[in-house]
Design a protein around this nucleic acid. Structure first.
Lengths: 128, 128
DNA sequence: ACAGAATAGAGAATTCTTTCGCTAACTATC
DNA sequence: GATAGTTAGCGAAAGAATTCTCTATTCTGT
């Protein structure tokens, strides 16, 4: 039975994606070493998760090299954006603005960050 | 075995929380009617989910009235914020700003919304 | 080429989530 | 107070996600 990528990556899948974002294309060993910094799990579990993710199309694998090298199938940006969109739908009832307001008020953003946001805001204001 | 609230509400739990946010304190029947607008499920499933959520502390129940009335244990704001914080940690590596920038650039916010955000931005800028 | 180590994979066990069937308890109405 | 209808709850089944054990394959150093 072919596995299909459900809407969102699961908990462990996300942890692995994050690792790949951080390390770039990596061997199972690389990923596993990173994972076991925060939790205790067997090497073969990491192998299995990666193979499940491969089936789902979340990652790709280069079999030409040994050991095999895994990389994310979609960019970090693209995946983040998809997850964000789903959160906006499911948690904020489709209102990105509510999410932004809450995110802003619950964080201590630096002057630089605030400036960046203002700049984007200006751009958005123009072509409307 | 006492059930414990894992970090995030699950898919169905969130759906029920959303219903309670929308309807306010409700009977199982109310919740179930709302749920079955979008998916087909038995009444007893809704009962069960609510009882699981009660065990986890996600909802509270008023037994003094018949039928019993359920309501969320934490406010919508509080729950949203907790979920948002976790997303910022797990998906944006702790950078609320990245999340805000992506949310803004992927949405078509109205002039009013942009103004609201600008206003909050100004406030944040001041007391820093 | 061989032994020991690392890597890869398959399948089952485990845990968590979601669903349901069945029964008990309660409510209203006649 | 019998009865039909609704509500509440339990325990098991079904479905997903995650983990492991065990085996096969590949690599490395001698």
């Amino acid at each position: 039975m072919p596995r299909t990528a459900s809407s969102q990556p699961t908990e462990v899948e996300l942890q692995i994606l994050r690792t790949l974002w951080e390390l770039g294309p990596s061997t199972v060993r690389d990923v596993h070493n990173r994972i076991t910094e925060t939790k205790d799990t067997k090497y073969s579990t990491t192998v299995k998760m990666l193979s499940v993710m491969l089936e789902k199309g979340l990652v790709k694998r280069d079999d030409c090299v040994r050991p095999q090298v895994y990389r994310t199938a979609a960019s970090q940006q693209r995946t983040q954006k998809r997850m964000l969109t789903e959160m906006i739908q499911k948690v904020y009832d489709g209102s990105a603005t509510s999410l932004v307001l809450q995110a802003l008020s619950s964080t201590r953003a630096s002057k630089q960050d605030l400036a960046k946001i203002r700049k984007l805001l200006d751009q958005l204001g123009i072509d409307q």
